[in-house]
């Protein structure tokens, strides 16, 4: 265990005043009053009951907690909710349009791109960010730019196939758009 020094504040010190944090989560504005050390991940899971976003490592090493903030993919475990005040957060729960699945969700089902499913919400949010960034076109580039999402079940080949398909679907849709 940690060598606790007398000079350290005990973990049980009275918490500072909660901080008001306003987030637009999946299109709905929510104001929370949070302890300063609440990560965005914990705010989503524990305070907003959005448990689709997973906690794998809690240290930026696995990608299970990936969400989109103002359209960019980040690890929600390594940012404080207070640091994201005023921003738009999209989680796996927010990717569907009404009852229609997101092309990535459809492609993951079609390609059997998961086994236990624990990494999947992070994979899909990360892939949505990847497509928006527009830096990947080959399978190798998809693999490299998805390397922040680990899959203990090793569904990688099918994940790449699913992303490739969704990428094409999104591109076709964009071309067909008026």
């Amino acid at each position: 265990m940690a060598q606790l020094k007398a000079s350290l504040r005990p973990a049980t010190a009275p918490p500072p005043e909660p901080i008001p944090v306003t987030l637009t989560v999946n299109g709905v504005e929510r104001t929370l009053h949070l302890a300063p050390w609440t990560t965005l991940l914990d705010a989503l899971r524990l305070h907003l009951d959005l448990t689709g976003t997973k906690k794998g490592c809690d240290h930026g090493q696995c990608g299970a907690c990936t969400v989109l903030v103002d359209g960019r993919r980040i690890n929600s475990c390594l940012t404080l909710a207070a640091m994201q005040d005023g921003r738009k957060v999209t989680t796996i729960e927010g990717l569907t349009t009404g009852d229609a699945l997101h092309p990535l969700q459809e492609a993951f089902i079609e390609h059997d791109a998961f086994q236990c499913g624990y990494c999947t919400p992070g994979q899909i949010c990360s892939a949505a960010g990847l497509i928006a960034e527009g830096k990947a076109s080959t399978d190798d580039e998809i693999r490299e730019l998805m390397s922040g999402n680990l899959c203990r079940c090793g569904a990688y080949p099918n994940i790449v196939a699913a992303i490739r398909q969704a990428m094409a679907a999104v591109a076709t849709k964009a071309e067909g758009a008026p």
């Binding site: 930026g60 990608g63 990936t66 960019r72 993919r73 980040i74 690890n75 390594l78 940012t79 990360s126 960010g129 990847l130 960034e133 730019l145 998805m146 390397s147 922040g148 999402n149």
Partner: peptide, 9 residues
């Protein structure tokens, strides 16, 4: 370095 998510942060 790191991952796409981390480099975004």
């Amino acid at each position: 370095g790191a991952s796409a998510q981390l480099r975004n942060m």
